[in-house]
Design a protein around this nucleic acid. Structure first.
Lengths: 162, 162
DNA sequence: CTTGACCCTCAAGTCCGCTTGAAGGTGTGT
DNA sequence: ACACACCTTCAAGCGGACTTGAGGGTCAAG
């Protein structure tokens, strides 16, 4: 009787029950105690954890990173250069992304505004904005963040033949 | 003899040969002429197209959207409300994302700065930043852009029982 | 004429974050 | 007793953007 069913915390945290089982299966969430008949029994703290996960996710952390963060945070308040590293890498990635998106937004906004008025929108306009966008050269050791940057595959260098 | 091999344009555009074949297979890239022995023969304009694709991608357009844009752009300079729609939706998504990332950056930056000085970094700090982040409620009709926002599953409402 | 670096196709695999389905057990209201 | 909304596990599927592998052909240099 004591404890919330999986559907209850799913509803409170705003995700589905299967998702919660999935999180447990990948070690993101600790397995909760079970009732005599095998039902998972949760407490409100799990709801908090789930909300934390959702927020971290929306900020661009992957489930893997969140798992790490949660593990570290459970380990306590000890100094932790790893967390600092993680944060710094995120910060750099976020700043670069903001810079890039801002430039894109400015161009796109001015184009949309131009169209909103009298002119007929043409595809050329949009294409030119894209074409003139600064190319982002993914550097070695680039951040593997999920901030909308697609991973770029490794480019095997061709051996010169001709 | 005339024309670049797939490996050549791959190298010049900065992607892999299989990727280029893949793009062709999904109709993103027009099938090039072939040599007598079946080798794809490209020109420099394909390299330009591939670079365009890369840029559009880095700005958050999906391959599907890029396909659309390219199709429209090939159709010429004709008025096109679809492009305007597409641009406006992108603009809204980009602005929301910038807003969100900026808030996150500010918090993260101040925390990292605090740690950079004298204090010992703790995991709690990072966790608190995340926990205090504003939750993004994905609205109905939310833009399906790939700007780092994860899709949220539909939440089936539980029927009240107890 | 062999070696080795390219090219071809087609199918299948990968990663992430889930969702969906099948097959079955539980708990409560009527 | 029955319906019905829950719960369980395990397996498979999905979407996007690729990558990898198998099996085989081509072309230029040594």
């Amino acid at each position: 009787m004591a404890g919330l069913l999986i559907g209850d915390i799913a509803e409170r945290a705003g995700l589905s029950a299967p998702t919660i089982r999935y999180y447990e299966s990948i070690g993101l969430l600790a397995p909760p105690p079970r009732s005599a008949t095998g039902y998972r029994r949760y407490t409100d703290t799990t709801v908090e954890e789930l909300r934390f996960i959702k927020k971290a996710q929306s900020l661009g952390f992957s489930l893997e990173e969140i798992r790490e963060i949660l593990a570290l945070s459970r380990a306590g308040d000890t100094p932790c250069s790893h967390v600092l590293d993680l944060s710094r890498r995120h910060l750099a990635a976020v700043e670069e992304r903001i810079r890039q998106l801002t430039r894109f937004r400015d161009q796109l906004a001015s184009e949309v505004k131009k169209w909103d008025g009298e002119r007929e929108p043409t595809c050329r306009g949009l294409c030119q904005i894209i074409a003139s966008a600064e190319e982002r050269e993914p550097a070695v050791g680039d951040i593997e963040l999920h901030l909308g940057m697609r991973r770029t595959g490794q480019e095997k260098t061709r051996t010169q033949r001709r």
